[in-house]
Amino acid sequence: MAAEGKTIDALSQFELSPVLGIFGDAVSFSQSNLFMVIAVALTVGLMTATANRAALIPGRLQALGEAAYEFIAGMVRDQVGDEGKKYFPFVFSIFMFVLFGNLLGMLPYAFTFTSHIVVTLTLAIVVFLVVTGIALARHGMHFFSYFFPEGAPVWLAPIIIPVEIISYFSRVVSLSVRLFANMVAGHVMLKVFATFVVLLGGLGAVGPFVAAMPLAVNIALVGFEFLVAFLQAYVFAILTSIYLHDAVHLH
């Protein structure tokens, strides 16, 4: 697929196409949507399995679910404080959705929905709206003092306030671009080196030996991509809780 015509075609893996036959055609249900549904189903399944059995000595599934729960619960408690418990379900859902999106993308033939800027931007906008909503609900009009730090000279206000507002909105872009760029870069690299393996492997007698080099790189990259998949989900969740901290305590 990637090496057809001896060219490197690293981007066609991000193309959307309808799935599930006639139903998918009718409502434009793409692989991206399919994998989102799978990610949600897996999350719900994991947490249901964890909560249903709730054995005193956890089995493997339950240990996994509890580890995920405690990881995010601890993170929200550390970052937001005890008031943050209310917002734990939100952070946890975001984290599991992004994590399963990244990890499902590591399966062969799977589609990485977090590699589309529309998806990550939508997630970031949801985070932004929720955080701003919480800040407004908790602090009312006092929230707008966030845009003018205490103690700054008043004559600087015409400069500081627009800069602070742009900086506040830039959270949406930085949150989404970080996840999107990491996933795209990783999957493009995987595809490029995989194509090298195929192209170099066809070079006659020496081919297989030369092709071993990009293959080795690709093996290392797969491991690295698993790290990135976890790390980016973690970064997304921890930035969400840092923003929640700002919203709750309004520095």
Binding site: S170, R171, V173, S174, R178, A181, L231, V235
Partner: peptide, 25 residues
């Protein structure tokens, strides 16, 4: 806050993304 990636690459990429996104906005 130190829980974010602290390596030189982590900080460098984060700084780049922050500048880029503020410019985009």
């Amino acid at each position: 806050r130190g829980a974010l990636p602290q390596g030189p690459w982590g900080i460098g990429l984060r700084a780049g993304v922050e500048v880029f996104s503020a410019l985009v906005v």
